[in-house]
Design a binder for these strands. Structure first.
Lengths: 146, 146
DNA sequence: GAAATATTTAGATATCTACCAAACTTTGGG
DNA sequence: CCCAAAGTTTGGTAGATATCTAAATATTTC
């Protein structure tokens, strides 16, 4: 997990990755295409690129599955989203709005910035759009140091 | 000032506009080119587009000057930048860092979001990189209502 | 007024993003 | 085992951004 910048994937691709992570099973191209209202070929192209970057395993005709690296990255993306949404909600936005606006902003937050905000917020457990999962190694969370 | 979204200009162009606003006089192409380390022709092209959008008056060979609309917009850009930097600094970033990171994020903050954060912060007068100027009509600042 | 300087124009390159249609391949149910 | 449905590949469109070089043009300065 060294060297994450938070900008490895375009925001659309990051949305795809988060979506894949949030499904239980192997995810099929069509499912993603329907969910995001785009053509299947658009999804295939994006998946190919995400796979090339090492976040998913794409078995043609059979769907995609996150790699361990992908799971780690997706967790970061979701945590980042929820932290940004939390901050927005603390500045007067309603949960819905905070979540929606966060989706526009989060792309620009680096891993480092995300971790520092997380620390400054005291590693909160809840945001306005879900739980925030912390990981020993993902940020300076409690318990990080031996 | 109705209908500002905050995304009217690309971030580079917004940087040019802010720079122009912060100079006293008419600003010359070369000056901008040197400041941002790009070729003069790059600047000319950008200025032409900014002028087309109505923010500056470009007298070829003689430099640029903000229009009233441009002044208003540049003020918004600077206020937005400083508010974002302020929030970051309140989350543990040093002034320098806050200002630098803000430059990466600010582009995504809409006028509306900016105004609401401004309100929630109590219309602060100072940020980490300069004063925050409020305007009766730019946000729900004190004194807005008769 | 000519030389030096500044600026603009024109023409290109490059990258990224996102998207679709059509042709082709695989799978899986019957 | 075949065919329709699902999925993929290929090739193309489109727009935005940002950049540069080289040539043309304008301005300034001596």
């Amino acid at each position: 997990m060294q060297g994450i910048t938070g900008q490895e994937l375009s925001s659309k691709k990051a949305e795809y990755l988060k979506y894949i992570h949030m499904q239980d099973d192997v995810v099929k191209t069509t499912e993603i295409a329907v969910h995001f209202s785009v053509a299947p070929s658009t999804v295939t192209k994006a998946l190919t690129e995400i796979a090339k970057a090492g976040y998913i395993e794409h078995t043609p005709y059979h769907g995609v599955k996150l790699t361990p690296h992908g799971v780690e990255y997706a967790r970061f993306l979701i945590r980042r989203h929820r932290l940004v949404a939390l901050i927005l909600s603390r500045h007067g936005l309603e949960p819905e709005e905070a979540c929606r606006e966060a989706r526009k902003l989060e792309q620009c937050f680096s891993k480092d910035l995300t971790d520092r905000m997380c620390t400054s917020l005291g590693h909160p457990m809840m945001s306005v759009c879900g739980e925030i999962e912390h990981d020993r190694r993902c940020c300076g969370s409690p318990g990080e140091r031996p």
